[in-house]
Design a protein around this nucleic acid. Structure first.
Length: 262
DNA sequence: GCGACAG
DNA sequence: ATCTTGTCGC
């Protein structure tokens, strides 16, 4: 696939002020309502995808791509795994030097280059990108899922393990919550978004039989680009197949890990 | 000055 | 994110 907006390619050499300005610009181009080329209801997985399937499968089924990174001392490696009709149809990798440290709110400038490097090598055309981290749940509505989604103008969602900002309608420390629980997350005064706007959800994708003994924390999902908050939770939920993480990110996670160990 | 923060 | 074996619970 191609980068449609080169001006939004995250440049680690920018000053903090320039980075934030770029985020405000791209957030203005972000679409937080449904504008997909496929019916989101057709995006689902009942079981973990089958490894590599060059032949067979419905060639017209939606292509969902999971992306994740692993790190060494000075380099980031990214793995993008494309899934269609229940099987992995393509896997690519990307690399980039680590030029700046992790700074909350500026994650895309540390990991974005590596991700775009991988996505450019992708032959299939993704209908949805699933990224690690926030999308609209961000101080300037420009989390890494939004940043990447807008740069390639492709529907995207963000899946995070922790909350960056915003206020859950039910405090997350009031858990454990039963599997399937969806808690709206509203914008607060730490964000540019009008207060009370639902910018994402906490999603209890998995829970143990006896949460009192041992429990799982919810995921934090938010729209990246061209997807609404409601559709985002529904789709991520449908992409889970028995594990806490949705299959696209689980597979990308594993792929990135063994790329690192090589 | 205080607080608070994805990966 | 990363450094790392065993260990708890179902």
């Amino acid at each position: 696939m191609e980068v449609v907006h080169p001006e939004y390619v995250p440049d680690p050499a920018l000053s903090r002020e320039e980075m934030e300005a770029l985020q405000r610009d791209l957030a203005a181009d972000a679409v937080f309502s449904d504008d997909l080329d496929v019916d989101p209801a057709e995006i689902a997985l009942d079981e973990p995808p089958t490894e590599n399937a060059t032949l067979g499968g419905d060639a017209d089924a939606p292509v969902v791509v999971g992306i994740d990174q692993a790190f060494t001392d000075d380099e980031a490696v990214s793995a993008a795994v494309a899934i269609r009709d229940g099987s992995v149809v393509e896997t690519v990798e990307g690399r980039a030097p680590l030029d700046i440290p992790y700074i909350p709110g500026l994650l895309a400038f540390r990991e974005g280059g590596c991700i775009l490097d991988a996505l450019r090598r992708l032959d299939v055309d993704p209908d949805l990108l699933v990224l690690d981290g926030s999308g609209r749940i961000h101080f300037r509505e420009a989390g890494i899922a939004t940043h990447i989604g807008v740069a390639v103008d492709t529907p995207s969602v963000g899946v995070a393990k922790n909350l960056l900002c915003g206020t859950p309608r039910t405090p997350l420390d009031e858990g454990p919550f039963p599997e399937g629980t969806k808690i709206p997350i509203e914008a607060d005064d730490s964000m540019t978004t009008p207060d009370g706007t639902v910018v994402g959800h906490a999603l209890q994708s998995r829970q143990y039989p006896n949460p009192e003994r041992r429990h799982v924390n919810p995921l934090v999902v938010s729209p990246g680009h061209r997807v609404s908050a409601e559709t985002t939770v529904g789709v991520v939920d449908a992409l889970c197949a028995g594990y806490k993480l949705p299959e696209p990110t689980r597979l990308a996670d594993a792929a990135a890990d063994d790329l690192k160990s090589r």
